[in-house]
Structure formats: C-alpha cells, structure tokens
C-alpha cells in the first residue's frame, strides 16, 4: 500500500483567452436573469421587484451580492448563496457544540453566523418533565452540558437578528456519545422529513441540517423501551392503520423513566472494532460526497458506502481519484434509475 501520494493540481478548465461576454445568459419572460448569478451580476433592471437577501440596488437596477441561485416569492427577489454559513430555520434538526455556559443558557455553535442559544428551560433534566427548575439546576449547568459537548437539537424559534433558539425537549434530542463527528458544507444537506437514520451495519447517523453530521453505534433498545414499543404496535395493528402518529415521540411516562442522569453521561458504551471500522468508512463516504459536491441524503450515503466496498481498505477513500470515482458511480446510478 502506498504511504504517500503526491498529485499535481488539476488543470483549470477555464480558457483565459475566451471572451466571457459571449456566454449565453438566459433571460426569462419576467426580465430576470435565469439560473445562477455571480457577485456584481445584474439580476434585473425592472424596478418593480422588492430586494431581498443577497442583492443590492444601484441606479434603479438590482445586482447580486453573492454567488448563488435566484429565488423569488411574489415580488420579493433574493439570491440564495451556494456556499456560506448555515442560516437556521424553525424546525431544523441540527447538531451543535456547546461553546459557552451562561446565565440560564448555553451558547451552541451550529455553524451559523451567530451561536445559537439553548435555554436551561428548553432541555430535559434528570427527573422527568414535570420537575421544576430550581436554583441548584442553574448552579450545576456544567453537569448537564459543558463546553465542547456535542448535542442534537431542534431550532425552536429565531431571534430578530437571525440567531436561533434551540430545544432538546424530546428523547431523540440531547447529548451525543458513542460516535464520531464529521463536518460538511451545510449547503449540501438536502432538507428532509427525517434527519436521523439507521444505516446498514448497526450505525445510526444524524445528518444535521447545518452540515454537522454525527455517526454513532445504534443503541440496543432496552427492555422497557421494547415493551412500550410493543404496546404501541399492538394498538396500531388493531387499528389497522399504516400511519404512525407522532413517530419517534414518546409518552410522558416513558420520558420520566428515561430522563435519568444517563442522558447526560460522558462515558461511551463498549464499541466493537467492526463498528468503529464501519463508522470510519461511512465518514469517509460522506466526505467523498462533499468533495464531489453531491447533495447528501441517506440513500446516497448508503449508495456511496456500497460503492466503497469495492475498496478493501477504507483508507483508499482519502485519495481524490477514489472519491471522484465514487461520486461518478452515484450520479450514474441515479441517472439510470431516472
């Protein structure tokens, strides 16, 4: 196996001599420059449009201030940047890292312009949901979450300045352990109904909308959990409905049972080397997807994983050519399927 590979920079595809002005710019009937715009490019000279984010106004004309795609809602014209920091939206499932413990709140880095806020009142504390928050909870906030801790949460609301307020008031949110953290550009994450998935190989993944991804060993369900699940399932099958209302949520009683100190534990379970190997392979796959600028979904991640099994050692996946060939495989496979 090679211990080092040194490549030359990829030759640029741009011909500096060619005249850029003859590039065709599609213009729609509404007088809007179509697809993608670059900073300083004229978007429209029609003054009827209201100017939104990513645009500026000069001499009755609207220009783009970022590189991205044009989006319009009624008369509001804005440019969504292709790259840039994550902009939180209410309801987003995000992964974050605590940066600061403050007065009744934690500051959480979620890759946005500002750190998000997690109020002490928006977390589950050991002892159940009906427990009152007391002064002693304020004093021992570092026992729950401290600087550097990773957590997953939902964006509860947004402040005027665009920063987010988070909450972890569900058993699927909270502190993260038993796994490995990977960061990819947030613009590549495809918003979906569900952002936590079970992957083949006994791995769970949380693909945060903010591009923070957490791979972990799937928790073996404990007996009490199974029991309640069975009860639910029994009730459902008798109702003969395929729809599971509030899937992933739990009854308040179980919340109380499970909200022990264990949810704030820093100690990992026993993780087998095979699981660790699978996690590194998945994390290399997601980095390969990010390298190829392919939108990240669960299906593509699994497809990349399957494509990567052609390489016996997951270490081969750090090479650029390998990442690109996996990216091509995925794109071709999706084209075939249509």
């Amino acid at each position: 196996m090679d211990c080092i590979t040194i490549s030359k920079p990829a030759a640029s595809h741009y011909d500096s001599d060619s005249d850029m002005s003859d590039v065709e710019t599609g213009t729609t009937s509404s007088g809007l420059n179509a697809s993608v715009v670059t900073p300083g490019e004229l978007v429209t000279d029609d003054p009827v449009w209201m100017r939104g984010h990513g645009t500026y106004f000069l001499d009755e004309k609207t220009y783009s201030s970022v590189a991205g795609t044009i989006s319009r809602v009624n008369r509001l014209l804005s440019v969504a940047p292709l790259r840039g920091r994550y902009t939180p939206e209410t309801g987003d499932h995000v992964v974050g890292r605590v940066t600061e413990v403050g007065n009744k709140r934690w500051k959480v880095d979620i890759g946005g312009k500002q750190d998000a806020v997690l109020m002490l009142g928006s977390v589950n504390l050991p002892g159940g949901v009906l427990r009152r928050k007391s002064e002693s909870d304020e004093l021992q906030m570092r026992n729950f979450l401290k600087e550097g801790d990773l957590l997953n949460a939902e964006v509860q609301s947004l402040f005027q300045d665009g920063s987010a307020s988070l909450h972890t008031r569900s058993l699927k949110y909270g502190k993260l352990r038993n796994g490995y953290f990977v960061n990819v550009p947030s613009s590549l994450i495809v918003r979906a109904k569900n952002h936590s998935h079970q992957l083949p190989g006994n791995i769970s993944v949380i693909i945060g909308v903010n591009g923070y991804v957490w791979f972990s060993q799937t928790q073996s369900a404990n007996p009490s959990y199974n029991a309640s699940l069975n009860k639910q399932q029994a009730a459902l099958s008798s109702g003969s409905s395929a729809y599971t209302p509030g899937q992933g949520s739990v009854s308040i009683t179980r919340l109380e049972e499970e909200s022990s100190w264990e949810i704030y534990s820093d100690v990992n379970d026993d993780i087998k080397p095979t699981v660790r190997n699978t996690i590194t392979r998945y994390s290399n796959c997601i980095k390969a997807l990010a390298h190829c600028e392919i939108g990240i979904t669960e299906q593509r991640l699994v497809a990349a994983y399957e494509a990567s099994t052609a390489y016996e050692s997951a270490g081969a996946l750090v090479e650029r050519e390998v990442m690109e060939s996996i990216g091509e495989d995925i794109i071709n496979a999706e084209k075939m399927r249509g």
Partner: peptide
Amino acid sequence: IRPDARSPAQFRPLEAS
C-alpha cells in the same frame, strides 16, 4: 483505526507544484 481509515504509515494526499 484512524478516524479517516488511513494506515499508520499513510500520509494524507498531497498536491504539489
């Protein structure tokens, strides 16, 4: 097991000019 699955003697890929 290295976090990016490299072998202990493997460098990260380089690009030189």
